[in-house]
Design a protein around this nucleic acid. Structure first.
Length: 489
RNA sequence: GCUCCCAUCGUCUAGAGGCCUAGGACAUCGCCCUCUCACGGCGAAGACAGGGGUUCGAAUCCCCUUGGGAGUACCA
C-alpha cells in the first residue's frame, strides 16, 4: 500500500474554529498513525475574504494544538506551492484541458439570470440546476457576449447518465443520481478557480490518498469525482466526519460563545485538553477510556471508529478535562502556564525574583486542584497579592455577622501573635483551645479567620493560607477586619 | 422545493443478532473525606424516537413515519 497522504485545507477567512480544528486533528492523527504525510494547504481563492492575517492566526492555532505539518506554509515540500493563489497557472492548464476535450465550456449567463431561473425551478418543485443555456454556444455567440463586455465563467459539463457513487470510509457507499448534478462553475469570471475544481486538482496533484473532511462536503463529492474521472486522475478515499453542533443542535457558531481555538487558549485552556476533548467529538475508543495522551490517540485512532452522527460541543466536559490536565502538570509547568495570567493581572513583574517565584509556586500548589482554567488563578489568588481586597458581601453576612465573630477574631489574633510560626503544627493546638473556649465546632473558629484574611469564605486550607501570608500580614488583615466590624456596628 | 446524511441516558459515546437487567465519561443529585471550596472515594437517577417487518431471538438487519443536520453560490 502506498504511503498515506492527507491534508488540512483551511480557507483563511477567519480564525481556526473548533470544527476546523477537529478536522485538522483527525487528519493529523490519521497521518501520524499510518506514518504518512500531513500537508497543510491554504485555500485562498476567495479574493474578497481571504487575508494574510487570517492565515497566520490559523497557523498559530495549529502550532498551539501541536498539529505539525510535513508540507505547507513555512515548510515547503515537493508538491507545492501550498497556497492556492500561487497555483493559478496549474488550474488554468487543467481548465483548458477540460475545455479541449469538451468537458467544460464558457458560460455568459449573469448572476441575475441564474437567480431568476433558480427561483422558477424551486417554485415548480424541481431541483435547482443550471439549465445548460450556454452549453453549446457558437464562436459567434461567444464573441457577441464578449463584445457586450460580459466576462464568462467556465462550467464543467457534468455526466448526465447513470449515477456517481461516493465510497465513504465512514458512511459506506452513497449514491447520487447524475441527473442531480448540474453543470457547475469551475472557474469564476475573476479568473479564479472555484473550490470544487481547485480541491480536485490539488488533491490529485499533491497525491492525497485520503480526503478527511466535514460532512458538509459530502454533497459536493460526486461533482468532484466527476472531475477526477474526466481528467483521468485516480480518486482518493473519502471520509466525511460528522458536524459539530451547539447546545441547541444547530451548527456550532459564534453565537454559541467561544469557537475560536485561540480564544480558548486565551481563556486558559490547555492544548492537551483541547486535543483530547476534540478527539472525542465523533470518535470513541472503547467503553471506558476518555483521557488519552497524544501518543495514545495516535496509536488508537482509526476512521473505522468515527461515528456517523453529529456531536454537540459540551463546554462543561471540556472544562472538566482541562482541570484533569492541569492537575497532571508538574508544579513548575503549572507555574509557566499561570505566569502570563498573573503578570497580566499585575500581580507579578515581567521578571519575577527568585523569592516571588517561590511564593507563587507555594500558592499554585494549593490552587492546582481547584482550578478548571489556568486563568482561574487570577481570581483565586488575588488576596495573596493585594492587601486591600474587597470583602465578599455574602461571606461577611454568613460568617462575620455572627455575634461571636469579633471575639473569635480577637482570639485568633492572639493565637497568631503567640505562635512561633504559622505552621499547622503550631496553630492547630491553639485553635483547638479556642474551640473549647467558645464551645463551637472547628469550622466556627476557622471560617471567620478565613473571611478576615482572604475576604471570602472559599479558599485553600486555612493553615496553608495563614502560613503563606505570614504572621505580619495575617495580623494586619485580622485587625483591619476587626475595625471594619466595629464600624459596622 | 430538490438531493444526501444521521437517530442509544440532558451531552459525548460503548454496543457489529443471543454476552444487554444496555456499559463508561461529563453534567445532575445523595453520602463519605473535611475548617470552606476543590480534589478523591462510594452511590442514585437517567437512553435504545415511533410503527411495521425479518428471525427461535433485534439497540443491532429491512421498510415507513417522525425528528435533526448538510448541500443545493462566480464561499470554501
Amino acid at each position: 500500500m502506498s504511503k498515506v497522504r492527507v491534508r488540512f485545507a483551511p480557507s483563511p477567512t477567519g480564525y481556526l474554529h473548533v470544527g476546523g480544528a477537529r478536522t485538522a486533528l483527525f487528519n493529523w492523527l490519521f497521518a501520524r498513525h499510518h506514518e504518512g504525510d500531513f500537508v497543510l494547504r491554504i485555500e485562498d481563492t476567495d479574493l474578497a475574504r481571504s487575508t494574510d492575517e487570517a492565515t497566520q492566526v490559523i497557523l498559530d492555532a495549529m502550532r498551539f494544538l501541536g498539529l505539525d505539518w510535513d508540507e505547507g506554509p513555512g515548510k515547503g515540500g515537493d508538491y507545492g506551492p501550498y497556497y492556492q493563489s500561487e497555483r493559478l497557472d496549474i488550474y488554468k492548464e487543467y481548465v483548458e484541458k477540460l475545455i479541449s476535450i469538451d468537458r467544460a465550456y464558457e458560460c455568459f449567463c449573469t448572476p441575475e439570470e441564474l437567480e431568476q431561473k433558480r427561483k422558477e425551478q424551486m417554485k415548480q418543485g424541481l431541483a435547482t440546476r443550471y439549465d445548460g443555456r450556454c452549453a453549446h454556444l457558437t464562436e459567434e455567440e461567444k464573441a457577441q457576449f464578449r463584445a457586450e463586455g460580459r466576462k464568462p465563467v467556465v462550467r464543467f459539463r457534468a455526466e448526465q447518465e447513470g449515477a456517481t457513487d461516493v465510497l465513504d470510509m465512514i458512511r459506506g457507499s452513497v449514491r447520487f443520481e447524475n441527473t442531480q448534478i448540474d453543470d457547475f462553475v469551475i472557474y469564476k469570471s475573476d479568473g479564479m478557480p472555484t473550490y470544487n475544481f481547485a480541491v480536485v486538482i490539488d488533491d490529485a496533484l499533491m497525491g492525497i490518498t485520503h480526503v478527511i473532511r466535514g460532512e458538509d462536503h459530502l454533497s459536493n463529492t460526486p461533482k468532484q469525482i466527476q472531475i477526477y474521472e474526466a481528467l483521468g486522475f485516480s480518486v482518493p478515499k473519502f471520509a466525511h466526519i460528522p458536524m459539530i453542533l451547539g447546545p441547541d443542535k444547530s451548527l456550532l457558531s459564534k453565537r454559541h460563545g467561544a469557537t475560536s481555538v485561540m480564544q480558548f487558549h486565551d481563556e486558559g485552556y490547555l492544548a492537551e485538553a483541547m486535543v483530547n476533548y476534540l478527539s472525542l467529538l465523533g470518535w470513541g475508543y472503547d467503553d471506558s477510556q476518555t483521557i488519552f495522551s497524544k501518543s495514545e490517540l495516535i496509536e488508537k485512532f482509526s476512521l473505522e471508529r468515527v461515528s456517523k452522527n453529529p456531536a454537540v460541543f459540551d463546554l462543561k466536559k471540556l472544562e472538566w478535562m482541562n482541570g484533569v490536565y492541569i492537575r497532571e502538570l508538574s508544579l513548575e509547568e503549572f507555574y509557566d502556564r499561570a505566569l502570563p495570567f498573573l503578570q497580566e493581572a499585575g500581580f507579578l513583574p515581567a521578571e519575577p525574583s527568585a523569592a516571588e517565584r517561590d511564593y507563587v509556586l507555594r500558592i499554585l500548589k494549593e490552587l492546582q486542584s481547584r482550578v478548571k482554567l489556568v486563568s482561574d488563578v487570577v481570581e483565586m489568588a488575588e488576596y495573596f497579592f493585594i492587601d486591600d481586597y474587597e470583602y465578599n458581601e455574602k461571606a461577611v453576612r454568613k460568617v462575620l455577622s455572627k455575634p461571636q465573630a469579633a471575639d473569635i477574631l480577637r482570639f485568633a489574633l492572639d493565637a497568631i501573635s503567640s505562635a512561633p510560626d504559622l505552621s499547622e503544627e503550631n496553630l492547630k493546638p491553639l485553635f483547638v483551645q479556642g474551640q473549647e473556649k467558645f464551645g463551637v465546632k472547628m469550622g466556627e473558629i476557622i471560617q471567620p479567620i478565613r473571611v478576615a484574611v482572604t475576604g471570602t469564605n472559599v479558599s485553600p486550607g486555612i493553615y496553608e493560607v495563614l502560613e503563606l501570608l505570614g504572621q505580619e500580614r495575617s495580623r494586619e488583615r485580622i485587625q483591619r477586619t476587626l475595625e471594619m466590624l466595629s464600624d459596622m456596628n
